Computed example of a mutant assay.
Amino acid sequence: MSAAPRIVLFALGGTIASLQGASGRAVAGAMTGMELIERLDLDLPVTLEVETLAQKPSNAITFDDLFLVRDLAAQAVAEGAAGVVISQGTDTLEDSAFLMDLICDLPQAGLVLTGAQRVPYAPGSDAAPNIRDAITTAASRAAQGAGALLVFDQEIHEARHVRKVSSHRLGGFGSPGHGALGTLDGEFVDLRRPAPWDKPRFTTLQPPLPRVDILPAAMQASPKLLRAAVESGAQGLVLDGMGRGQVPPDWLPEIAQLRQDGVPVAITSSTLSGRLAEDYDYPGCLADLKALGVTPMDEITARKARLLMMCDLAAARPTPA
């Protein structure tokens, strides 16, 4: 009989590790990872190791936390782990999944992130099912080398497309316009490979990452915000554009000046799905932005485009002598 696969769970806190506070409200991350696993009383055919790296709510997760997970995950796999699971709060779970997909490469192991919408002490909590499914996925052959996967509500999502789609429902995550990569039914994992994407890898990158700001395009949004962001320290900008990649027409002079000053600028779409396209010919359209040297970032959210630009800028900085 073959040995049970070894899975390492790195716990960062979040709703999934909450306890009820004196106020009656949840204290996110109050439990350690081991306390959570003991409370859930899971019965899985794996050898599970648990390491608590943080006990934070999701809004307090940092890049340093994730780079530490990256390094420890690589070490765990080098020492024989078949898979890695990361548990944290859901509000930044899609960000963490995308960044881990960029900075962590585990071709011989599964890499899975999960969390919960309901605290573990609430009736009908999804904490135990999501942890169980994440561990099951990480241990599966299908997950090996598939990049960072997000497991939630019996679905498996690709880091590139997944996003939080509900603030409270158990089906809290989806991949609008693309759908899940797979599903789980108990110990059965049905997972297809993600579509090819020539994504960069930043496996040797080290923090800190340069600051990049997101500017949402909206009706009569002020172009002064772009200059203010750069003057206050942003080294790059992501424009969360409208439709196919449009911004208000009076943004163009400011964008032109920023590009002339050497500030990298990218454009995404704030829509739930669909590609950017040069379909239009009017001031503020994608064709105008591209002519100014703005980089289109297709089919990823502004939050993910920001992470990609931060990694790109960090990778391009001179290596210390």
Score class of each variant (00 low, 15 high):
6 R>I: 05
6 R>Y: 06
8 V>A: 11
11 A>N: 04
13 G>R: 01
20 Q>V: 08
23 S>I: 09
39 R>Q: 13
41 D>H: 07
50 V>A: 11
55 Q>V: 08
56 K>D: 06
70 R>V: 09
70 R>S: 10
74 A>Y: 05
75 Q>Y: 02
76 A>W: 01
80 G>D: 10
91 D>P: 00
91 D>K: 00
92 T>I: 10
96 S>Y: 10
115 G>P: 02
119 V>G: 13
125 S>M: 10
127 A>N: 09
129 P>N: 08
130 N>W: 08
133 D>M: 01
141 R>S: 11
141 R>G: 12
145 G>Y: 03
153 D>V: 00
157 H>D: 04
157 H>K: 00
157 H>P: 03
158 E>I: 12
161 H>F: 13
165 V>F: 08
165 V>R: 01
167 S>K: 05
172 G>M: 13
175 S>F: 04
177 G>T: 09
181 L>H: 00
190 D>P: 03
191 L>Q: 02
193 R>V: 12
194 P>I: 15
194 P>R: 06
200 P>F: 13
202 F>C: 09
203 T>L: 14
210 P>S: 14
213 D>M: 08
215 L>H: 13
220 Q>V: 05
225 L>C: 07
229 A>L: 13
231 E>K: 00
240 D>L: 09
242 M>K: 05
242 M>E: 08
242 M>S: 10
245 G>L: 09
246 Q>M: 15
256 A>P: 01
257 Q>A: 15
257 Q>V: 14
261 D>H: 05
262 G>Q: 06
266 A>H: 07
270 S>E: 14
270 S>L: 15
282 Y>L: 11
283 P>G: 10
285 C>I: 06
285 C>H: 04
292 L>I: 04
293 G>A: 12
298 D>E: 07
298 D>W: 01
309 M>V: 08
314 A>V: 07
316 A>E: 08
321 A>K: 00
